[in-house]
């Protein structure tokens, strides 16, 4: 697989759009899925996933052919997602706690406006609950948890995607798991 991708990249470097199309076909589901789980919204996921591929194309000269292409692509996509999350924050203050709501943040308030918590849980698919809880994780934990459990990358690959020491990746996975445990244990 990597060999095939590398042979196509040589064509992409000559500016061949069709060769790049073949690469997009191989990775589109993985990259789109990562963006969807990071951002929790199909429209934004498509926007950012497309942007990731376009940036890969534009910067293809900077890709080191001796390294795994998927790692490089994940890196571009993850950085774009984190940028998007950070940009969104000041507008909505989703993580801000509201006085007197006992841990409920604005996000869950917005989400549950029309329904009581019981109705909400009954109505929402398990999958949506898990997705919503993942979205509550700070982005540095969210990215490692998704890369490990959804994209099934090794710790070494995750450390390359995020450009972090393996020890830091492990610590973040541990903290991410603990945070999710508190959120999901009563399901």
């Amino acid at each position: 697989m990597e060999e095939f991708v590398k042979s196509r990249i040589n064509e992409v470097r000559k500016g061949d759009h069709n060769a790049f199309g073949e690469i997009v076909e191989i990775y589109k589901d993985r990259i789109y899925q990562l963006c969807y789980r990071m951002l929790g919204n199909a429209h934004e996921a498509e926007d950012i996933a497309q942007e990731a591929f376009i940036r890969a194309y534009v910067n293809i000269e900077r890709y080191n052919i001796n390294r795994k292409f998927s790692t490089w692509l994940y890196r571009i996509a993850t950085n774009l997602c984190i940028d998007r999350i950070r940009k969104k924050k000041p507008d909505y203050f989703l993580d801000a706690e509201v006085a007197g709501t006992d841990g409920l943040n604005l996000y869950s308030q917005v989400k549950s406006k029309e329904m009581s918590p019981d109705e909400k849980v009954a109505k929402m698919e398990l999958q949506e609950i898990i997705q919503m809880e993942i979205l509550k994780l700070p982005e540095k934990y969210r990215s490692v948890i998704l890369l490990k459990y959804i994209e099934e990358l090794s710790l070494k690959e995750i450390s390359e995607v995020l450009d972090l020491p393996i020890g830091t990746v492990k610590t973040r996975i541990h903290r991410g798991r603990e945070a999710l445990r508190k959120q999901l244990r009563n399901i």
Partner: peptide, 22 residues
Amino acid sequence: TTALVQSMSHIKAPDDFTLKVI
């Protein structure tokens, strides 16, 4: 917790994704 996260179904990109990128 990890089993729940792993149980999430795989999502596919929209059909016209590649076309739009190109």
